[in-house]
């Protein structure tokens, strides 16, 4: 049952990314490349609409003490701005700006991007696994969301 809920949520997520065309790296780069003369601000509307709906729903859900099918809400416990947060965001931003793919759209693009996406995904998973090996020594008190 837990897996069925997650599959449905993932499916809606993937459909949303596709309708917004965030699965197309050229469209994401057209947002990030602000000074190209052909700036495409669409990504701001994806984020804005997502934040508005999720934020409103979160306010309502916050009154509950536990999710419908679980014992507790899992939220990040880390507080304050630290070096891992900034360094991680810098590295991520650099990779994102190079090719226009981030984790969600990369999974969604697996069926449409052919070899380039497969290469990116292999490296992405390798990078994530490398963090599992060395990460605990680099971060303190952070738990996965």
């Amino acid at each position: 049952m837990r897996a069925a809920v997650a599959a449905l949520a993932g499916l809606i997520f993937g459909i949303g990314l596709t309708i917004a065309e965030m699965t197309n790296p050229a469209k994401v780069l057209a947002f990030l490349d602000v000074f190209s003369g052909q700036w495409d601000p669409s990504l701001i509307f994806v984020m804005g609409a997502g934040i508005a709906l999720y934020g409103a729903g979160f306010l309502i859900l916050k009154r509950r003490t536990a999710p419908v099918m679980g014992d507790r809400f899992h939220l990040p416990t880390a507080q304050g701005i630290d070096t891992p947060l900034i360094a991680g965001a810098v590295l991520f931003g650099a990779g994102w700006g190079l090719v226009g793919l981030c984790p969600g759209p990369a999974f969604a693009a697996l069926s449409l991007g052919g070899a380039p996406v497969l290469i990116f995904m292999a490296a992405n998973l390798a990078g994530m696994y490398a963090f599992e090996l060395v990460g605990p020594r680099m971060t303190r008190g952070q738990t996965a969301a």
Partner: peptide, 18 residues
């Protein structure tokens, strides 16, 4: 693509989100 994938994978985990 390899460089970007490694940066995105390691960076998102280190920074705890994407």
């Amino acid at each position: 693509l390899v460089a970007a994938g490694l940066l995105v994978g390691f960076g998102t985990r280190l920074g705890n989100g994407c």
